[in-house]
C-alpha cells in the first residue's frame, strides 16, 4: 500500500458510503460497518471529545446494534420525524489519510450535510469526521467514526439522519 493507493481507497469508500446514505439504502450502509463499530458524536466539539469515556453527553454514542435499531425504527410506521423522509446530500471533502497500513486507514474529512424535508424545511450540518477503516475479508469497513459538529446549539428540530 502506498500513499496514493491509500488516498484512493479512502476516497472511494467515503464517496460510495455517502451515496448509500443519500439514497437511503441504510441496510447496505450497515453492511459497510464492522460488527464492533463505534459511531460517536460528542456534545461540545472540544471538551466533549476530550472528556473521559462515560462522563460527558453525546448526540450519538452508538454501536452496530443501536444503529440497526435506528434503521428498524424507520420501518415501524411511527417514525414521524422521517415520514415523509428527509432528502439528504452528504458532501465529503478535505479527505486526509492520517495513517495507513494494509489493514487499516485513519482518515479525516470535512462534511456538509444538507437536509430538505416537506415543503420548506432546510437544515445544514457542518463538521469534521475522524474515521477508522479496517479491512474485513478483503473489504474496507468503517470501524470507528467520531463526528465533530461545528454547531453548538443545534439549529434543527432533531438529528434524525446519519452522518
Amino acid at each position: 500500500m502506498d500513499e496514493m493507493r491509500a488516498q484512493f481507497e479512502a476516497e472511494r469508500f467515503l464517496y460510495r458510503e455517502a451515496k448509500l446514505l443519500d439514497e437511503r439504502r441504510f441496510e447496505e450502509w450497515l453492511d459497510l460497518l464492522t460488527d464492533d463499530v463505534r459511531y460517536w458524536m460528542p456534545v461540545g466539539n472540544l471538551e466533549g471529545a476530550g472528556a473521559p469515556d462515560g462522563q460527558h453527553l453525546s448526540y450519538f454514542e452508538d454501536n452496530k446494534q443501536t444503529l440497526m435499531l435506528r434503521i428498524k425504527r424507520l420501518g415501524t410506521g411511527f417514525a414521524h420525524a422521517e415520514d415523509p423522509p428527509s432528502r439528504t446530500r452528504h458532501l465529503i471533502s478535505n479527505i486526509v489519510v492520517e495513517a495507513f497500513t494494509e489493514a487499516e486507514l485513519k482518515v479525516s474529512a470535512n462534511f456538509i450535510v444538507f437536509r430538505g424535508r416537506l415543503e420548506t424545511e432546510e437544515d445544514l450540518f457542518v463538521g469534521r469526521r475522524e474515521d477508522v477503516l479496517r479491512k474485513v475479508d478483503g473489504q474496507w469497513k468503517l470501524a470507528a467514526r467520531k463526528i465533530l459538529l461545528d454547531h453548538n446549539v443545534i439549529g434543527a428540530k432533531n438529528l434524525s439522519l446519519f452522518f
Partner: peptide, 20 residues
C-alpha cells in the same frame, strides 16, 4: 447516560418525533 441519549435529546429515537 447512554439510555438517556439513545432515547432523548435531538438524536434520541423517542424525542425526535416531538419536534416534528
Amino acid at each position: 447516560r447512554l439510555a438517556y441519549l439513545a432515547q432523548f435529546g435531538p438524536g434520541g429515537v423517542v424525542e425526535q418525533d416531538d419536534g416534528e
